[in-house]
Nucleic acid binder design. Structure first.
Lengths: 121, 121
DNA sequence: TTTTTAGTTCGATAATATCAAAACAATAAA
DNA sequence: TTTATTGTTTTGATATTATCGAACTAAAAA
């Protein structure tokens, strides 16, 4: 559904559904705009690649579980900061995290990545 | 060229060339993290698509020239702000701008977009 | 039950970003 | 030459973000 708007003197067609998508995209890009967070995101991604060699990843110990713990070990920023960053990645829908007991697992949200790539086409 | 670093107690392999790329990527994402700037970027992109119909773009008047003027007309933010935003997009290498006389032309830097997409693979 | 481990939330602070107004520079038009 | 038009830079006010440490909660281990 498209809502078109014409402004005096210009062909100012605004597709509001696109505008919505833009604000959403901006949020996603913002989540990736901090280097630490980007690294964190990359780590989560790498953890998923079970067969990846350590030297191909940014992680200290590939595998999918205990993202939080591993992040603490790899990056030297405080735990509270890591908690904040992970939350922001979740808010942008870039990753999904679940906690069972003391184990904290994160995985990348592939559909969202697809959306972003589509925008960059 | 890879420089690998091992930290006591962890398999903390850091590929510094990747780290460099990360900081660069973060910069790019930061440039796209502001909604106004993202819209501006999208407009520049759309201007390039000569055959695009008005309703398919975010621009008021498709075509590649006078980006600045058009941006001012379409988005109601001040000229100084637009100047700042365009500069940031340029700093991130996302667009290239040239000025001949009063005409201001911008175009998207496709190689950089490719880099970003590669990261998101 | 007590202690450790794992992660969250709060409060403070420093750094950065956003944006506009005003002064400025360069080009084009009158 | 004078005046508009275009865009830049500086300045400054305000808002947002990054980050830490400390206090806190919940689960697991001792």
């Amino acid at each position: 559904m498209k809502i078109l708007k014409k402004v005096v003197g210009f062909y100012n067609y605004l597709d509001y559904s696109t505008v919505m998508k833009l604000s959403n995209l901006a949020k996603i890009f913002k989540a990736l705009s901090n280097e630490q967070r980007l690294k964190l995101f990359r780590m989560v991604y790498d953890y998923q690649e079970v067969n990846m060699k350590p030297e191909e990843t940014l992680s200290c110990c590939p595998g999918m579980q205990k993202t939080f713990t591993k992040a603490c070990a790899c990056m030297n920023i405080s735990r509270s900061t890591i908690s904040h960053h992970l939350k922001e990645l979740q808010n942008a829908d870039l990753i999904t995290c679940t906690r069972n007991g003391q184990t904290y697992e994160c995985k990348v949200n592939d559909e969202v990545l697809e959306e972003v790539k589509k925008f960059l086409e």
